[in-house]
Nucleic acid binder design. Structure first.
Lengths: 133, 133
DNA sequence: TGTATATTTGTAACATTGCTGCAAATATAT
DNA sequence: ATATATTTGCAGCAATGTTACAAATATACA
């Protein structure tokens, strides 16, 4: 955690380390409510500010899916090694409501005559492994 | 407009007809601010309620893209004729900020071992035709 | 067409989400 | 170890979204 903060020119504080740990320790994307539950010294304002800084530094990314509150996730393995393009898909389970970042080996390429696409994000809804039974 | 409301078992009111017209008359997805400007009898609460009902009846769909306020759009041509799956892509122009629903002739198919995908939505960012110059 | 019933609208009041200014607390650089 | 810079937490505010209830409007049906 410390290393990550330092390499992004951010002061190392307990709060920031904790926020990072929480995101790292969750396989799924994290909604605000989870931070609220898991942070020892939860403070709404500081949390918003911390997440904002992390977003600016691109340590984390934000996932907005309709009908869901905003979730936050780290760009794990992939992003740092292969380019910084999100070669993954955001999957929302309609049953347990968790949002997961799924890595994709082959990412679709879309070409449009009128639009110049810089970034493409895939959002899927359905059933996750544990909810399929 | 009237026909659409009736076929969805909704009372036909001037407000609802106006909201529908606004969405129909815009090529791009419509943010709340546009309703505020264009509605003759703008009322925040009624608008929220109206949009909610339209969403439930699946007359319109909601587009949430991070860093943007929610936009609303009709499922035009495509959706009604071919299935009710959104065979289109949501494009956000990073310059003019408009969000457009773009129809796709070939929609990518994604298969994942652990996840059962019901719906796939594509969100792209880049430059729209008029902003490319 | 007129009237009873059901639905929708607008007001008020409130909850949630998110931001900013400022002083106190903490981290960093030397 | 201390001066400086940054971060935190509080207060207060703005925007977004919801609910309860009475008045207004739409619908159903005689």
């Amino acid at each position: 955690m410390k290393k990550i903060l330092k390499s992004n020119q951010l002061s190392v504080t307990p709060f920031r380390k904790e926020v990072l740990s929480i995101i790292y320790n969750h396989k799924e994307a994290v909604p605000l409510s989870v931070f609220e539950q898991e942070l020892k010294n939860y403070n709404r304002i500081t949390l918003y500010r911390t997440l904002k800084v992390f977003l600016e530094k691109k340590i984390i990314h934000e996932i907005a899916m309709s009908g869901q509150d905003t979730h936050y996730a780290i760009c794990k393995e992939d992003c740092s090694t292969i380019k910084h393009e999100h070669q993954h898909l955001h999957f929302k389970c309609k049953k347990c409501k968790t949002i997961t970042c799924v890595s994709l080996t082959k990412f679709p390429k879309i070409e449009l005559p009128l639009y110049q696409i810089d970034q493409l994000e895939l959002q899927a809804t359905g059933l996750c492994n544990s909810c399929q039974s």
